[in-house]
Amino acid sequence: MSVTFNGKSGEVDGDGWNLMDTDNRSKYRCRPQISVCWIGAAVVCLVLLLTMIMVAQNTSAISHWDTKFEKLIYEISKSRDDLRDERDQLKIQCSNLTKEMESLQSQYNTLAASRDKLQEDIDMLTHNRTDKPCNHGWIKFNNKCYYVSPNGVTKTWENSRKDCREKGADLVIITTKEEQDFVSGRNGVSWIGLHRGESEDEWKWVDGTGLVDHGFWQKDEPNNSDGEEDCVEVSSAAMAWNDVPCKRKFSWVCED
């Protein structure tokens, strides 16, 4: 193949290339200043794009945090309101309790007044009783009436109590030293209204009350020596109590 090169025109004849000359090619070469400008513009756009992305992300994060803060504020506000409601309920309950306490105090005052009035009535009845004479055959002592069985007449503890109850009274209940001395001096040995309760160490009066303090026992009494000493007698010799079997027969003293 033959190639003819024309240096001026840059053409290649025949089967070769037809190239522009050097001057013409220089017109279409990229200028460095224009390339730099385009690169700068691209960088600026990229920075703007990244900035927009970051702003969008920050905006989304801020929106997310705003939502969380709003929820937190709502919960705090709700808790505050609930506490206020609870406080108001407690105030109402406190007020109701105060009113109830005042009502109870008023009731107590009323009951106390009634109690005092009953005590006055009891005192008056007691006073009136002191003026009441004892029945025929009864002995008056310290504003009480006593019946002493006839000398030489004896009964068991149960039958002695039966006799007292038929007279509208009961076996004597001794509560004072003066009464003890009075009863002890009536007969040789007399039944009184004291008997053993459910246990060996329990003593009860005929009215169901228990023995107060030590009582007026003889020395080393009560001893329940034979295991059946469940009733109590008082003797003029010892001037004190002794537990004996209830089936024994003694005089007795009733108290109205």
Score class of each variant (00 low, 15 high):
His136Ile: 07
Trp205Asp: 07
Gln180Pro: 09
Thr126Gly: 09
Trp138Arg: 01
Lys140Tyr: 10
Ser199Val: 08
Val189Glu: 05
Gly210His: 15
Ala169Phe: 00
Lys117Asp: 09
Asp123Leu: 00
Glu178Arg: 09
Lys132Met: 02
Tyr146Pro: 03
Ser184Asn: 02
Leu111Pro: 05
Trp138Val: 01
Val172Lys: 02
Gln105Glu: 12
Glu158Ala: 14
Lys99Glu: 14
Thr130Ala: 07
Asp207Thr: 00
Ile173Asn: 13
Val189Tyr: 06
Leu118Lys: 06
Ile174Pro: 04
Asp207Cys: 10
Gly168Cys: 14
Pro150Thr: 08
Ala169Arg: 00
Thr126His: 12
Val153Ala: 05
Asp116Ala: 08
Glu100Ile: 06
Asn128Leu: 11
Ser160Pro: 07
Thr154Cys: 01
Lys177Phe: 10
Tyr108Ser: 10
Asp213Glu: 13
Thr130Asp: 05
Pro222Leu: 00
Ser114Gly: 03
Leu111Met: 15
Ser199His: 14
Gln105Arg: 12
Gly193Asp: 09
Glu100Leu: 06
Ala113Leu: 11
Gly193Met: 08
Trp205His: 04
Cys145Ser: 13
Arg186Gln: 13
Arg196Leu: 04
Cys134Val: 07
Gly210Tyr: 10
Thr175Phe: 07
Tyr146His: 06
Asp123Cys: 05
Gly168Ala: 15
Gly208Gln: 00
Lys140His: 06
Arg115Met: 05
Asn142Trp: 08
Trp217Leu: 02
Asp131Ala: 02
Cys164Ser: 14
Gln119Asp: 10
Cys164Asp: 06
Trp157Val: 01
Gly152Gln: 00
Gly185Trp: 08
Ser190Met: 07
Ala169Thr: 15
Glu102Leu: 04
Val153Thr: 06
Glu178Thr: 01
Lys132Gly: 07
Tyr147Leu: 02
Asp170Tyr: 05
Lys132Ala: 05
Ser103His: 06
Lys162Glu: 14
Trp157Asp: 00
Val183Trp: 04
Arg161Asn: 15
Ser149Tyr: 03
Asp163Gly: 03
Lys162Phe: 10
Thr98Phe: 12
Thr154Pro: 08
Thr176Ala: 03
Met101Gln: 14
Ser190Lys: 03
Tyr146Glu: 07
Glu158Lys: 06
Pro150Glu: 02
Ile173Gly: 08
Gly137Pro: 05
Val153Lys: 03
Asn159Gln: 15
Ile139Ser: 08
Arg186Met: 10
Cys134Met: 08
His214Glu: 15
Glu120Asp: 06
Lys140Ala: 11
Glu221Trp: 09
Gly215Tyr: 08
Asp170Ser: 04
Asn128Val: 01
Trp205Tyr: 11
Val206Met: 11
Ile139Gly: 05
Leu171Arg: 04
Phe182Asn: 04
Lys162Tyr: 09
Ser160Gly: 13
Arg129Gln: 15
Leu125Tyr: 08
Thr130Trp: 01
Lys132Ile: 11
Met101Ser: 15
Asn135Pro: 07
Arg161Leu: 04
Ile174His: 01
Arg196Asp: 01
Tyr146Gly: 02
Met124Glu: 05
Glu200Trp: 15
Gly185Lys: 11
Gly168Ile: 12
